[in-house]
Nucleic acid binder design. Structure first.
Lengths: 184, 184
DNA sequence: AGCTAATAGTTCATTAATGAATTATTAATT
DNA sequence: AATTAATAATTCATTAATGAACTATTAGCT
């Protein structure tokens, strides 16, 4: 048994993600009167933009044999003092499970970009360090990405960027606070 | 052979994600002079906030037997005209592969929240439709999430929200445009 | 009409990511 | 000092997500 398509064709012409989010939010609030429209829209936009950007970076990294998570982890290490950090730090800041971090580090070590050594101070801990090869890779790739990144954001004014940065920092802090508070 | 921990302990005290991003950006731009600091910070913030929020929603959904992707997909359908859409539409707007959409829909159909029927208009296509059960689920769960969502964003002023929404819309459009242009 | 593109959805093999349980080590309490 | 609790990292089993190849159907040429 098959169904008629009704208004599906009409919808297909409304194509951009932004429009799609707007109309979806409208429908939700029509059905659920008290829904916080603006907040929903904002959250969905953040999610959509983040996913899109991730996909874009991933596409740029693939040809070089790594994915976004690998690179992000390597960057985190690259940006750490002395190029060193513990796995648990990385997993915390990358919103990644420890299990997964073990796997990611495995593959980075295997490719010679990172070393893994036992810590003297606390023998439960592991000290990860980026190698010269790892640093060279980052230094070679990063400059290629920066122009793309800047061009995505070039439609924003300095003021807009500033406001968004501040706003996101507040949200991040708020989320972190509620995570702490919620656990107790 | 083991390594000394050097400054790792000092870093561990600098804990919040925001601070961590800030100091990481500082280090990158110290090593790579031309790096667009503000843009990098903004992108990392967007990513971090999106990941955190996703994790939060996922945690709220788990007890009800679905994950974030399942729910997002169901919502998309809930918000579509007549509660109907094609799989390819959903995968496009959810930044999700078609393959994965097949799997997700499989599980939604299995649980009786969605129906899958052949289209009359174009026999290649499938028409997905949310069932009364599916609608009931959404209507039951949504109101629980809205307060949480609003409270995360309550540290922002109306103006800030407005600016961020506009900014994100611009970025989304810019990404979409570059995706189209880049393909030709 | 008939042949070539292109499109929609699926299956199968592979890669990514998570959660529960485990081992080793340190911190805290008595 | 000994016992209990907490922490760091790992392994193993399971769930999610992707990409390449495939089938069926429609659109575009000529």
């Amino acid at each position: 048994m098959s169904k008629p398509d009704s208004k599906l064709e009409a919808q297909s012409t409304t194509c951009s993600v932004v429009e799609q989010i707007d109309s979806a939010v409208k429908r939700v609030s029509a059905i659920i009167p008290g829904a916080p429209k603006d907040d929903i829209r904002l959250v969905r936009l953040i999610h959509s933009v983040a996913a899109d950007m991730s996909a874009r970076f991933d596409g740029m990294l693939r040809p070089h044999g790594l994915n976004e998570t690998d690179f992000r982890t390597l960057m985190q290490l690259f940006c750490s003092p002395d190029g060193q950090a513990h796995p648990s730090d990385l997993s915390q800041f990358a919103t990644q499970s420890r299990t997964n971090m073990t796997r990611i580090v495995d593959s980075l070590v295997e490719r010679g970009w990172v070393t893994r050594d036992a810590s003297d101070v606390d023998r439960r801990r592991i000290v990860l360090a980026i190698t010269p090869d790892g640093e060279a890779l980052v230094k070679r790739l990063l400059p290629q990405f920066h122009p793309k990144l800047s061009s995505f954001l070039s439609i924003l004014s300095v003021d807009e960027k500033q406001t968004m940065t501040e706003g996101l920092k507040k949200i991040a802090a708020s989320l972190e606070a509620s995570a702490r508070g919620g656990k107790s």
